[in-house]
Simulated assay, not measured.
Amino acid sequence: MIRLRPHRPAAPVLALAAGAILLLGACGSPGSSSQSPSDGASDSGGAAAAAATCPAIPDDQLVVLEDDQHLQTVDNVIPAVNAAAADADPGLVALLDSVSAALDTDALVALNKAVDVDRKTSADVAAEWVEAEGVAPSESSAGQGRPIAIGAADFSESATLGNIYAAVLKAAGYDATVVTIGNREAYLPALEAGTQIQVVPEYAGTLAEFLNKAANGADATPVASGDLDATVAALTSLGADAGLTFGAPSAAQDQNAFAVTQAFAQEHELTTLSDLAAACQGLVLGAGPECVERPFCQPGLEEAYGLTFSDFRALDAGGPLTKAALQQGEITLGLVFSSDGALAAG
């Protein structure tokens, strides 16, 4: 299953620790894609009998525990490009790849904080980031004034990424604009046609499964996994049939993640979900009500990590209810999103 990518709220969100430990690189839309737990499940379940029952510890600061068994499907930010536009302009993808090379999850969290918490515009935040990272090319004539339109979905992270692409392309001499075209069902046909938009910031795992189901039916065998290279290979093949090509995936991910309070993590010396399974059992899990059935959520945590839960609280998927319940000590483990701007809020 693929989680639905939520709209980023404009209102301030609850503060989380800036030092959150995030899953990066090759190790799972809004809503991130998810996979069924693999056969290589953690052996932490064997230590479950010896693990203690650990009560929640209230704390305003939260940290994300690393998904070291790769329960989640990779969902790295990746530039999706109309294939005809890329063929006509060989330098286009290389410019977008310069963004991927500079972008990681910590940077994405900071970008989202600037927009969603600090209330800056996506265009201003993008321009500041491009300048600070030195991503803009020194050669300003490559685009020769050619028009190019970057599509963005209707949530702030996509708008910010689209504006970053546009800023880099403008610096290279393109007449670049950002066009907001709703959800994937609306913008993907426009990208495939290549007349209204030619580039979109996408998410590798989620798009791979979207194209997979479009081509092979709703019950198609999943092609996205916790393996970034394999997921991008599947995405590239499916994209070619749809008239799309892709740049290099960035290290930045927007995917499901699980958080505890910083005080709880420090008390039990936790950095990974395997650490949690070895130290604690009988946890109280908080997430959206669908978590009890989704393979990336409670069933996956039980199978891949051997975690046990004494209670489940139906709250929201990575939203303020779950984060508040963690902070107030009502739950010990909560579902959040890895690029949530609140992860950088102090």
Rank of each mutant, 00 (worst) to 15 (best):
A56R: 06
S138N: 10
G28F: 11
A218W: 10
F210V: 10
Q196K: 09
P9G: 13
P147H: 12
C297E: 09
P249C: 02
T231L: 02
K170L: 05
A26V: 12
L307V: 04
L321P: 06
L283S: 00
D87Y: 08
A304K: 00
Q198L: 08
R184W: 12
S141R: 11
S237D: 15
D43E: 14
P79R: 01
V64I: 13
V93I: 08
Y165H: 01
T221I: 02
A345E: 15
V292Q: 08
S38V: 06
D39H: 03
I148G: 01
V109T: 02
P289V: 15
E209R: 00
D227A: 02
R294A: 09
V117W: 12
A314H: 07
E192K: 02
P30S: 12
T322P: 00
S36H: 07
G151W: 04
A215M: 03
T221V: 04
L4A: 07
G239V: 07
A345Y: 13
L235D: 09
I57A: 04
S32I: 09
A252G: 05
P6E: 13
I181S: 12
G205F: 13
Q253F: 03
N216S: 03
E131D: 09
V135G: 03
P147W: 11
T271K: 07
R119A: 15
Q144R: 12
A176C: 03
K170F: 13
A159V: 11
T206N: 05
G19H: 08
L228T: 06
K120G: 10
E139C: 14
I164M: 09
A132Y: 14
Y187E: 02
D67C: 00
Q144D: 09
A48I: 01
Q61L: 08
A52R: 13
L169Q: 00
A85V: 13
A26F: 08
V168G: 00
T231M: 01
L333K: 04
A47F: 12
A110K: 15
A50P: 02
L211Y: 02
L228N: 02
V223H: 01
P90S: 02
S36Y: 14
N183L: 12
P320S: 11
A215C: 01
